[in-house]
């Protein structure tokens, strides 16, 4: 029953995809209203004017360009012409670095907040004010103080991914079942051992959920951050291709951003499943 449901869902997915491609193709094909003009002028104006072709690239053009990119993902022809693999690599490295820093700060701090009602109450106003700030609002301050655009982007990733992890860790730690804590207490388990053998495994699913939310936000923010700082990265690539008026490349970049985001989410989902325990 389950396999047949999955099979049927797959058929519907493929059908929807084909319908989307078909509509896209129909919407962007030439309207065949050819304007009469001198051949030189027509050459200057391009297919959009001469054949009534839509300015929006069709699926076949995007597909061909995508294939070209996939064949050579790592070429480097100078600052404004790098392979998509290199650009994505830069973005993933920035996200990874900022995210790792956020994990290193948020999880210990979240533990502290979750275990100590005093610290929780004391830090609460700061967290409440800092949390809703758009990560990009930090950018000028980061650029001014750090004076390096690459590191500033990493800082922005750090600041945006720290909050969901921090809050989820604190919540997960604070809501560990009292009875499990009591088991550790009656067994005279020390604070450190209790933190690692009872609280961490009990809070792990909640912590991982926070980490999963964070990686999603970090990947959302990196595109915007790279548009601002420029130089390298998939966000920069999008903006650069917009300046080149290459809508085909922009569409390809959008597609790849989506796929990489999905993969990052899947990795964290797998980790979450590993630490989740049935009750």
């Amino acid at each position: 029953m389950t396999t047949s449901l999955r099979f049927r869902a797959a058929i519907v997915s493929v059908a929807l995809f084909l319908a989307f491609i078909g509509i896209w193709h129909l919407a962007t094909r030439g309207t065949a209203s050819v304007a009469t003009m001198s051949p030189e002028y027509a050459k200057l104006m391009g297919a959009t004017a001469t054949e009534g072709k839509s300015a929006m690239p069709g699926p076949s053009e995007v597909g061909a360009k995508l294939w070209e990119h996939l064949k050579r993902p790592f070429y480097d022809n100078g600052p404004n012409d790098k392979g998509l693999g290199i650009q994505l690599g830069y973005s993933i490295a920035r996200v990874g670095l900022g995210y790792l820093l956020a994990v290193m700060v948020a999880i210990p701090l979240g533990f502290l907040i979750g275990m100590s009602p005093l610290i929780s109450k004391a830090l609460d106003p700061f967290i409440q004010v800092l949390k809703p700030i758009s990560p990009l609002a930090w950018m000028p301050l980061a650029l001014y103080t750090i004076k390096d655009s690459g590191i500033s982007a990493i800082f922005v990733i750090f600041i945006c991914s720290v909050w969901p992890m921090l809050l989820n860790t604190a919540f997960g730690v604070a809501s560990v079942r009292k009875e499990w804590i009591n088991v550790a207490r009656t067994l005279e388990v020390g604070t450190l051992r209790r933190a690692f053998t009872v609280i961490l495994p009990a809070a792990a699913p909640t912590i991982l959920t926070g980490m999963r939310i964070s990686i999603g936000i970090a990947w959302l923010v990196i595109v915007a951050a790279e548009m601002l700082v420029g130089g390298t990265g998939i966000g920069y690539f999008v903006w650069n291709e917009w300046n080149n008026l290459s809508i085909t490349n922009v569409i390809i970049a959008i597609l790849l951003i989506g796929i990489v985001g999905m993969l990052l989410d899947q990795v964290l989902a797998r980790f979450t499943r590993m630490v989740t325990f049935p009750e």
């Binding site: 499990w180 009591n182 088991v183 009656t186 067994l187 495994p201 630490v275 325990f277 049935p278």
Partner: peptide, 19 residues
């Protein structure tokens, strides 16, 4: 003073560590 390994508790909700 506090808990002790000399006094074992059997909890109503069994309180097993599910992981």
């Amino acid at each position: 003073e506090g808990t002790s390994l000399d006094r074992a508790v059997i909890f109503q909700s069994h309180a097993l560590l599910p992981w």
